[in-house]
């Protein structure tokens, strides 16, 4: 199972803990939305290839 973690802001300890548990023994990718100019094209490609996308706070 391939999980894509998208971050809207820098993850705090609680989010990090959940990310770690959900991603355990799974194929995990991430994408940082909290930048000046996110590469939306690359993000959509990642969303389309992931089995599940989780967009954290």
């Amino acid at each position: 199972m391939k999980i894509l973690n998208v971050y809207r802001s820098a993850p705090d300890d609680t989010t990090k803990k959940l990310v770690e548990i959900v991603g355990r023994d799974r194929d995990v990718e991430s994408f940082d939305l909290a930048v000046d100019a996110p590469d939306y094209d690359a993000l959509v490609d990642k969303i389309f290839t992931a089995d599940q996308t989780i967009c954290w706070w």
Binding site: K17, L18, I21, V22, Q52, W57
Partner: peptide, 19 residues
Amino acid sequence: IEELGEKLRDMTHIIPYGI
């Protein structure tokens, strides 16, 4: 939080809601 994480592993959709 640990139990929540384990529960999330079983979900098809995980939604961090709002702000």
